[in-house]
Design a protein around this nucleic acid. Structure first.
Lengths: 197, 197, 197, 197
DNA sequence: AATGAATGAGCATTCATTCAT
DNA sequence: TATGAATGAATGCTCATTCAT
């Protein structure tokens, strides 16, 4: 029952943040939508920003966690690079709501900015490691790998935002998008040699 | 004198939005910083959001305008693709403040969201045309070119954000970043043939 | 307790509107006088004008309600016409505060103007019916009865305003005023025959 | 030219006060309507209230001045009482704008309240003298005459407001209204003897 | 744990008035 | 006289948060 109320409020908040934005959503809106009393909100959250921070943190954690794991065996046949993009798109699809919320509302406070910056930094480290493992850019310095990693993140995030949030496409687009991104990075007749080396 | 006050207010607003965020910045902060009276603000702007919208609009216009033009002759020797990335990074560098502000504060209202969405759409169309002219992906469908275009935008924007805003690097990094991005897209020994064909 | 606060605010508002006028009275004055917090005001009223509208509406309703009922038996001996004037003066006396407030402040908004116009129209209809029942002007057309009815309203309202508001006389003046008004309309030696028929 | 501007502003103010009310009309509205600059307003008036006071004062003066004069010879045939009502209705018709403005906006300030109260007092004195001259109520005390006088004022003012402002009827209604009011006060077969004595 | 009435600091905006030109 | 850009005091209203029940 208790956790019911908490998750009701989180769901309500996600819905309202998505619909009207963080700053436009009042705590009174959230509790009305969740069907609880005004005071109940403060039993579970420090305040509105604390709720936002919690949501952002858990979504961003989920995204980076999903990308932390190495390539699954079943993905090998499609090329080691393809699975990475595919998996990233999939996890962005599942977290498209937070993608939209953070895009619409920005970071809303210094604390959430720190979380966001830390997220991108961690993402960059994960991608950089993958790039190293894949030996795509063997001669790159650390900084150059960093640039490459951030590029990949921006690429996937922007396309995910445009397709899953703006165009509101479903997950069946993931394959098509992943293919383009992979081919684009490694034009036809070139990919296999590079990623296979 | 009159335009003095207006641009003082715009400068003050940019500074304060950058430092403390849009929602944290009061109109009273802006006028104090600009050295004008409270009421003067409303001689030049409808309200705080109108000011933000004006700033965002003109910055985004400047960015997309800068990318509209075709390659300059002087760029040809470095590869037709390189100039595009270089120019994009340069204009993002010059508009890094609005990049930070919009990243930190999101779109703040439906109207600004529309402006932002229109900006990305226009950018995509520009990039798509450049990709067609360059014949990099001759066999791509329109939709695939769209994916490619948004990828480029996300790539450049994310790297620009990380280097020019988070790391606060200067314009001397533009060359280094552009080189990585160009090489990354077209691995060594491959670029010339593709862009040259 | 809750209704306590609401009626405290209404009382405070009536007092302050009477003393200093509607436009001169700030919401902060009302809440200070009522001993509640600023925000509490907005729990019970939409805003300052909503409060005014509510007060005006209920006072005007009370006035017209009091005049709707037919003559009481006990009044018969004094003449059926006398009781009407007497009762009107009495209800105006009890509502002399709103009389003063509306006189001093006018209607303050289109919505309150509509309420006021509707009040006078309803009053006119009530008086017109009484005039018909009393058969004072048997040969009058509907429009002439309307003129007569509005005349009576104006007469009583002006005298009530002058005696109860400007001169601040008490209810003991009601009899004296009613007598003059009745005699004036029906000069000595004439009244009985008319109202008796 | 100079007086042109002043009367332009007075006309504009009358129009706007009538259309939207005193408090809703900004000085900037008045000067725009009058076609003069903002500062010019303060060359001719102390402020918005000073303008209102001036308008109210001159209109109310006009009304009471019109009623000060005794009965004209040409009116004698219609009954000495009739001309009084007729003349009052006529002057109220000509000043129906200020009637509406003061009714809609109340007195707006203590100073204008004083002017208004003084107006009614003067009107009462004028009517009282007329009543004495006409010997309609020979046995009345001063106070009773005062009641009678205020009754007449209220009667005429209310009917004038309803017909000339609310119903927006033209001056051709004056005769019809005056007849009803005169007959009402002095029922048929009674008037002549009374007013003739 | 749950409620919801009460709080009050906070802020955008208005507009009558001034004054340098 | 006339201007109109500039002023800044004034205030209605919001809403996150608290706390007695």
């Amino acid at each position: 029952m208790a956790e019911d109320k908490k998750s009701n409020m989180i769901d309500a908040a996600l819905k309202l943040f998505e619909e009207q934005g963080y700053h436009q959503t009042k705590v009174s809106d959230i509790v009305r939508e969740a069907g609880v009393a005004q005071g109940t909100f403060y039993l579970y959250f420090q305040g509105k920003e604390d709720l936002f921070r919690g949501i952002a943190e858990s979504c961003l954690d989920e995204i980076s966690a999903a990308l932390k794991h190495g390539p699954e065996q079943s993905c090998q046949d499609d090329g080691v690079y393809y699975w990475m993009i595919h998996r990233a798109l999939t996890v962005y699809y599942h977290n498209r709501t937070i993608l939209q919320i953070m895009y619409r509302n920005g970071v809303a406070s210094q604390e959430i900015k720190d979380i966001s910056d830390a997220f991108y930094h961690e993402m960059m480290l994960i991608i950089k490691e993958h790039l190293k493992e894949l030996s795509i850019f063997p001669q790159y310095t650390e900084e150059q790998l960093e640039i490459a990693a951030y590029s990949k993140i921006g690429m996937v995030e922007m396309v995910a935002y445009q397709w899953f949030v703006v165009k509101q496409c479903g997950p069946d687009y993931i394959n098509a998008i992943a293919e383009v991104i992979v081919q684009m990075d490694c034009p036809p007749g070139f990919k296999m040699e590079v990623s296979g080396e």
